[in-house]
Measured scan of single mutants.
Amino acid sequence: MLDDRARMEAAKKEKVEQILAEFQLQEEDLKKVMRRMQKEMDRGLRLETHEEASVKMLPTYVRSTPEGSEVGDFLSLDLGGTNFRVMLVKVGEGEEGQWSVKTKHQMYSIPEDAMTGTAEMLFDYISECISDFLDKHQMKHKKLPLGFTFSFPVRHEDIDKGILLNWTKGFKASGAEGNNVVGLLRDAIKRRGDFEMDVVAMVNDTVATMISCYYEDHQCEVGMIVGTGCNACYMEEMQNVELVEGDEGRMCVNTEWGAFGDSGELDEFLLEYDRLVDESSANPGQQLYEKLIGGKYMGELVRLVLLRLVDENLLFHGEASEQLRTRGAFETRFVSQVESDTGDRKQIYNILSTLGLRPSTTDCDIVRRACESVSTRAAHMCSAGLAGVINRMRESRSEDVMRITVGVDGSVYKLHPSFKERFHASVRRLTPSCEITFIESEEGSGRGAALVSAVACKKACMLGQ
């Protein structure tokens, strides 16, 4: 009897593995994704193909990295998701002549009506938060230079001027797309009239992360975010950046690689679950690469896999709870928690219980395998993109072996128990001629924006502006 049951459990697990095998990517698959990513990057950089390229390769006008001589107080704003952060950054000489960066910050959550109302409502709310922060720190009387981390696709015309191309991540505030974001912020500050600010720089969160990590390690020339969304930036040779005049030196390019796949480059790798996630998203047909990796989508992918296993009578005796059938019910943090389970399955059992399920031991094991399959594919897909960037940098610099540091931020990278190990191992397999160091950014977005502002202020002083 026991043997029969054991055989049935083994057969069930084997069927589960057959279904989950769809998520496995072979090294040849990853090399294919990497080569296609490089081709799209090239198209994004070139003037004649930029418009139709899915990977936009947006110039950021960040050319210099901090040298350690900029000092002063800077205000930093960070808008990239449902939370908005205001930070005071003091850049100065530390002990023994070292450079020191001290920060104080406060988080504000953005109400739904500000995210989806008008641009005026959104930026009025942001300036209200700045006003509140300055009151708390008794700094209303000071006109501070301000660095703005704005983590949406922007076409820069200068370091302090950028046109919002399109909202992502659930934002829909009308009247912002096609307009200068810094102008919208300046107008809102003017409307309030109770404080003055000098907006000197606007950067993407990947750029802010790279600059913040450069402060720790001067070989950091790539910034990457794996959180709600997924994106990367890197220092490109100016001669390859056709959208900006000049051939000397390097400029940081914001790849906006989340949109890779929007022209069909990933079609052969998309599964039924991916198509369902895409169809029910706020932007169907867009940001397809990001939807395979980002935390906004990972939990939902797992939920759809679990429903398939229920329908195949391989999980929960073929019956799903009402909660499990509800879109968004299986949160991405559950994926991390399930994979963090120590082996007694308590954590998995508790999560499934909150979803109205009474799982068996085998159910718990199957749910864990589903989570591992989805998150491992995410790590491997992400590795193909980064390997594409790094191999490109090595080739354009004609280096036999390139040493490089990548600064990384984002909740999936930082909080998932195995993502970074799987990701690092896969990147290294795909970049055999590179020695890569990964560092995690601390308060990256805010500190990085302030350091970019410090560079901009120093330049302005040198130019006598």
Rank of each mutant, 00 (worst) to 15 (best):
S445A: 03
G80Q: 06
G444W: 02
E248T: 14
E331Q: 07
R250K: 15
E95Y: 10
V203W: 00
E443I: 06
V33W: 00
E157S: 04
V452T: 14
G285T: 07
N179Y: 08
G170C: 04
L306H: 00
E17M: 13
G388Q: 10
V55R: 05
M57Q: 04
N83V: 09
A460N: 15
G407H: 00
V55W: 05
K161S: 01
K169D: 02
V199A: 02
Y215I: 07
F330D: 05
N254M: 02
K420C: 06
V226S: 04
E52T: 10
L301S: 10
M197E: 01
N179M: 10
T118A: 02
D124V: 02
G193L: 07
F123V: 02
G448Y: 02
A370H: 02
M402D: 14
R394T: 06
L58T: 01
T405L: 08
R345C: 09
A370Y: 02
D344G: 08
N313S: 12
K136F: 08
S336R: 08
G356H: 14
A449I: 01
T376C: 13
L463R: 13
D194G: 07
E51Q: 12
A176C: 11
R191W: 03
S281E: 11
D365L: 12
Q98I: 09
D160Q: 02
N231Y: 11
I19T: 07
G385Y: 04
E442G: 05
N180V: 00
V389S: 03
S418D: 11
R192F: 01
D160A: 03
G183Y: 04
R422L: 11
M251Q: 14
K32G: 10
E268I: 10
W167F: 01
R85W: 01
I163K: 02
A449S: 06
V199T: 00
R392S: 10
L355N: 13
K90M: 13
V310A: 11
Q98H: 12
Q26E: 07
Y349Q: 08
A282H: 05
M87N: 06
K190W: 05
L266A: 03
R36H: 07
G444C: 06
K296V: 07
A450T: 01
N313D: 09
L270F: 05
G147V: 03
D198M: 14
T376R: 11
M393E: 01
L185V: 01
T228A: 04
L266F: 05
A378H: 04
V412G: 04
P59A: 05
R377L: 03
I436Y: 10
E322C: 12
S340M: 13
R397A: 07
S383V: 05
V16L: 15
E319R: 15
Y273N: 05
E95R: 08
Q26S: 15
D132C: 03
F74C: 06
E52A: 08
P59W: 01
F419V: 02
S263P: 10
A384D: 00
E112D: 11
F74V: 05
T168I: 02
D278G: 08
Q219Y: 14
A208G: 06
L306G: 05
N240P: 10
F84A: 04
V367M: 07
D409E: 14
L386P: 06
V305K: 07
Q323P: 11
I348T: 13
L315Y: 02
A449G: 10
G446Y: 03
T149Y: 03
V277H: 06
L75F: 07
G356Y: 06
S54D: 08
H50V: 03
L122H: 02
K291T: 07
G147S: 03
V226K: 02
V91K: 10
G193K: 00
L75Y: 03
L451G: 05
R303E: 07
E399A: 10
L25A: 08
M121L: 05
E28T: 14
H156A: 03
E265F: 00
T332R: 03
I439P: 02
E399D: 07
L75E: 06
K142P: 01
Y413A: 07
E268T: 14
K90P: 02
M139P: 07
G249H: 14
G147T: 07
S411D: 04
D113L: 10
F260D: 04
E9L: 11
V154R: 02
Y215Q: 01
G246I: 15
K39W: 13
E322Y: 13
K142G: 07
R36Q: 10
W99H: 13
Q18Y: 13
E443N: 10
T431V: 09
S353P: 08
E48I: 14
G227L: 02
A282Y: 13
C364S: 10
V406C: 05
E112A: 10
K296A: 10
E236I: 05
I436K: 04
F23N: 01
I351A: 10
L271T: 08
D29F: 14
Q219L: 13
E256R: 01
A11Y: 07
S340P: 04
N180R: 02
S441M: 04
E14T: 08
S373L: 07
V226Y: 05
N283V: 10
D73F: 12
D409Q: 04
R428Q: 07
C364Y: 00
S69M: 06
M37A: 00
Q38V: 10
Q465R: 14
D365Y: 06
K15R: 14
R186Y: 00
K143L: 01
G229S: 01
E442V: 14
S411Q: 07
T361N: 10
I293F: 01
T361A: 12
M34V: 09
L314Q: 15
A379D: 06
G410D: 00
C382A: 12
W257T: 02
E28L: 11
S76H: 03
E157Q: 04
E242C: 09
V154H: 02
R397E: 07
V203S: 01
E40F: 02
Q286H: 15
T354C: 14
L266E: 13
G343V: 11
R397G: 11
G223D: 05
D73M: 07
E95M: 10
V455Q: 15
N166F: 13
D262M: 14
A6T: 09
E120C: 10
A456E: 15
E279T: 15
E265C: 08
L165P: 04
S212C: 06
L25F: 14
V200Y: 01
L314N: 11
S131L: 03
L288W: 11
H141Y: 07
E27L: 10
M8S: 11
Y234F: 15
